[in-house]
Structures are given as structure tokens and as C-alpha cells.
Design a protein around this nucleic acid. Sequence first.
DNA 1: CGCACCTCAGTAAACGTTTTCAGGTCGGAG
DNA 2: CTCCGACCTGAAAACGTTTACTGAGGTGCG
Lengths: 334, 334
Amino acid sequence: MGADDGPTIVTIAERAGVSIASVSRVLNGQSTRPETLQRVMAAADALGYVPNAAARSLKSRRTQHIAFAMADIANPVYLAMVREIQQVLRAAGYRLVLHSTDADVDDELEVLRGLGQRYVDGLILCPIRVTAGHLAELARTSVPVVVIGSVPDGQRVDSVRADSRTGVALAVRHLYEQGRRRIGFVNGPLDTVPGAARDAGFRAALADVDLDYEPELVELGDFYLEGGAQATARLLDRTRIDALLCANDLMAVGALRTLRERGRSVPGDVAVVGMDDTDLATTTWPPLTSVGLGSAERGRRAAELLIDRIAGAGTDRHRQILVPPRLVVRGSSR
Amino acid sequence: MGADDGPTIVTIAERAGVSIASVSRVLNGQSTRPETLQRVMAAADALGYVPNAAARSLKSRRTQHIAFAMADIANPVYLAMVREIQQVLRAAGYRLVLHSTDADVDDELEVLRGLGQRYVDGLILCPIRVTAGHLAELARTSVPVVVIGSVPDGQRVDSVRADSRTGVALAVRHLYEQGRRRIGFVNGPLDTVPGAARDAGFRAALADVDLDYEPELVELGDFYLEGGAQATARLLDRTRIDALLCANDLMAVGALRTLRERGRSVPGDVAVVGMDDTDLATTTWPPLTSVGLGSAERGRRAAELLIDRIAGAGTDRHRQILVPPRLVVRGSSR
DNA sequence: CGCACCTCAGTAAACGTTTTCAGGTCGGAG
DNA sequence: CTCCGACCTGAAAACGTTTACTGAGGTGCG
């Protein structure tokens, strides 16, 4: 097979009549005699030299790659994170390796284990459930990990999480202030991180405004549109509501559809509030009131945290960042 | 710095009392005497050995990474591609490196050039515009590239493209069959690949059904929601229409909003058709009729093509695949 | 019984960098 | 005139794999 395998540092050295060490030094901007520098640069240019990433990584133990693992990139929440992460990484000279795990825990663990191959310098992990397996793997990863979501105290990882409790409280209070008293709640599965947090938040929020928690006002969907539509239908079949909080925007869109099919006006008969404040919220009619949980910000902070951690020594304490929620009121609730 | 830098092939060799060559052979599943195999496996397990990706790549010239570069991952079209690509890649043992270039041509070229570092085994490129610079870089990339979109004949790349001409024709014919005669068209910028293709398609399609091309029926948006809403407003201000074709779903959603604000019923007064058939189409009311251009399929085929090309010798002719469009009729046009 | 073969394991040379270490040259100070 | 430091450079040793090539031992056959 041909010898035209692209120029290496050796090729340049020969052409410039210097040693490979000098070439390396010039290429890495270390001080060199002007003439040498000149010669090496000329040779490199002429040959169209491009450094080999694998060789560099082998020596430097840096790949300039960072992985992001989440359940499903099609979910607008993760999408917002990916976007933001990519931006931060690119600015810092890193590339993004994407893992969409289809909410499969084994896949996620697989990614965590794969870290040992050191094909990335760090990982941002946004798990949908945190299992014992996760903690075990986290405890002995070979590269820094930042978790988006909650993590038991004392873990060796930095984390960034949304304050969905407060978020739910914002929504409930808003609906209460609009005079709504029968507030339905379409949540996601309770054994997921966001589902559990929202459930706790909902109970606490009701107590805050002196409303009782009535199980018949709560239904579970699956965080997707159809599931939200069906959960809403079950809720309407069972009881009377004048407001509906959905655990994410996608389910809220499903709810809007069901309400329309049943001839209920929004916000006249039922005020609807979603969560995550994704782009979807502005595409519906009426536009959807939604509680933003800062997905973009969580992504950004996580990326920054990770880059910090990679750069600095790993000595200092691990940080936990809490991103505050923000209620964006639109037509569906006023 | 501790010496506990993780076990290498050498550590295993020592512990198992064999040479590193034997270890490598065992790890790569080459035939070995049962006892040796046994010893090596035991040692590897005990040490929790994980191979080093950089070292492996350096020797094998394979990284098991593939890059995908597109304008903006937040665009549902690209999103569908990413999803599908990721799936195919994962099944084949590759990882996905994502480049979201913000439609910046220089960034795209930068990615193309970076390929020389060989940090990936191949690239899937979905350019929004194809410049001379692209062709120049494509002509001398060091790894295989598959382009999603059109590429001049005779290039050294495989390509997969949508048949947006036929797609537009399907939409126009559908609207015509519904009895619509004043068909408005909200297109994207004409200097983009999709914009140009759709413009050509629209003219041809009108001719097919014996309608005249009237410039006053055409407006340009920017492929985003607001732009679509505004373009629709301009169209309505200027002339009378009973149907509206939008060059993508996002603009169609904007159009729906403007129509509602102006008190025009859909599909009663105006039938609306989008393009790309993204998830958005099922979230609107009425649900949006849309021409699917097979983004998911394009992603899948591109990934398959690339993997093929990487595996097989590069000898055979470069392929061009044309993905057929599909009209999905929903409530907004009947 | 000897020779050719086959199977398996070990030695050593890559792969393309970065980096340490040991000169070598030059200028200035003693 | 000698000696010392400052500055550059080149030789060579890593980094952790894979992969010829070589050699040793065992088997089958003449």
C-alpha cells in the first residue's frame, strides 16, 4: 500500500533539516531560534501537515473530547442541554461525543464503564434513574464526571440540578392566584428522578396554599404527548378540574389536544401549565404557560464545571449547583 | 502522581507470567492454548483491565468515532437525522461526534479540515450551502465523507439526498385536488440548498397542474417560526389565497398562528401544508398536513453508506441515493 | 529414527507524538 | 584567557497497543 500516508513530524524534520524534537517544539510554540522556526513552519505548510490526534492523545493523555449521555436526544429538554453544552465545549476547544441511551440503564452503565478506555476527557451524565450500579461506577471512574440531576451527598462528582420542587410550587401558586381551586396534575412515572421530585413538589405546593392533596386529581403519563393526552382524558372522566399542571411541555400539548376534543376551552374552562418551557410552548394555541427549569442553563453550567475540573487539580471539594426555576406566563393560563 | 494509572497490557503480562504479545492475542480472540487464555483472562479480570483507546487507534488507525456536522441540532430535521445516525452507529460499534455549526460556513470547513487529525473514521456532512471551499476540501479529505444533500457529479463522495422537487409537487397536486387554486408559498432563502430546490419544485409543480406561477403568491421566510409567521402576514396583506404551502413545518406553525390571528379558519378558508413531517406536525391544531422528506431515512442511509465505505475498500464507484418524499395528509388540509 | 510441518509464545519493531536529558555554542563576567 | 550561565538543539526514551518475525516444542509421515 502506498507510502503517501500523510506527512508526519518526521517528514517535516527531514525536509527542514532539523530534529523531530525541534519540529515538535515549534509546533507547540516553544521558544526557538527564528531561523529554525521559519524553516519548520515553511516545511509544515508546504507539506500540509496535520498532527495525528491518536498519537498526541497517547502521550498527553488528553483527547479533547467530552461525552454527554442522556436518555433521548429527541426530548426537547435534553436538546436544549446538548445545544448549550456543544457551544461551551467548542469555545473551549473540546468536541462533543453524544450518547443517546434510550433510557436504558444498562446502556448508561456501559457508557460509564467505557470511560476507562479514556476516549474522552470527561463525561456529562443526565440519568433518568440513579441506581446502585450508577453509584458504584461513579465511585471509580477514571475521568471527571458531572451529573445533571440529583446525586446522593458525598459522591465524588460535581452536579447541577433543577429545583423542580420550587418550580412546581411556582406553577401551583400561579394557578391559585388565578382563582383556580381544582388543580389536576399529570405527572410522569414516579420511579424516575424528575417524576419523584415533581410529586414531592406538588404535595408541598398544595400545602403551601392550603389545598388538600386529592389522589383523584393526579394521573401519571409517560412524559410523551400521547401519554399526556390519555392521562388527561382519564382525569376528565373521573373528576372536575379548572386547572391542569403537566410535568412537561410535551404532555401539556397532549392535554391541550384532549381538552379541545372534549370541548373545554383553554384557559376559560381549564388553565393549563406545562414544565420545561421548551420551544414547543410557543408553537401551541393558546401559547403554553410553562415553568422553565433551566435546561439550557443546566447544560451550560455542567459543561463549565467539567472543563474546570479537567483543568484544575481534582483536589477541591465537589460542587453542587442548583438552578432556579422561572415561570413564564402565556395565554394558556390567563 | 501515583503509579496507579490503571493496568496496561504489561501489568497483565507480568501477573499472568506471559508476554505482552500473548496478552494482546488473547484480548483480540486469536487462538491460544487454553491454559494461557485462562491465565490472561483471570489476570485481566482481577486487574479490571480496560484497553486504552488512544494507543489502539495509533496502531490500528481506527478510532471507532464518526462525526456528523450540520447547521443546528435544534432544527427538527437534523434532530431526526442525529437520532437515526446514532442508532445505526451504536449498533455497528461506533460513537458519534457531533458538530453543530450554526450555519457558519467557516466552521463547517474547519470541521472538514480537522478531519486530517484523524480523530474520526468518517464524516457525515449536511451542508446548508455548498461552496467552492467545500468541494476543494472534499476533494482531499483523509477519511470517507458522506454528504446529505446534493453534490455536483463526479465528486469523490457518496451522497444521500431528499427529492424535494417531487415533494413540493405532491403537496401542490394535493392542494389542487382539494379544489384550491390560489396556492401561496412561503419558502426559505433562495441561496440555500433546500430553498433553491423547493423553488424549482414549486414552479415545476404549478406547471404540472396548469396553474401560472405568480410572484405575488410567493414570500420568503427564514425557516424559523417567526419568519414564517411574518412572511404569511405579508402574503395575506398582499393577495388572496385559499391554500398555503410552507417550506418547512416550523414556518407552517408560524403560518397557522398568523392565520388564526387574522381570523382565517384552517382548513376552511386556507388549507395549510408544511414540509419535513416532523413531530411538530402532530402537536398543532388542526394537525398539520406535511410532506415528509425522509430525514430519518436520509440519516440512516447516510450512516450505513459511511460504515460500508469504511469497511470495504474504497475502490468501487461512489453512490448517490435519492430518498422519495411522502405526503401525510392531516387536518390542516381537508 | 529423522525430517518436515504445525501450533503456540516471546522478542522487538512499529504507530506519531511529547519530553527529558545531555551536549554545544555564544556572550559576558571575572 | 577561562569559566559560567543562557539559550538552542538533537538523541533517545517514553505513551500502550498490534503485529511481523523467530524459535521451541510436539506430531505425523516416510
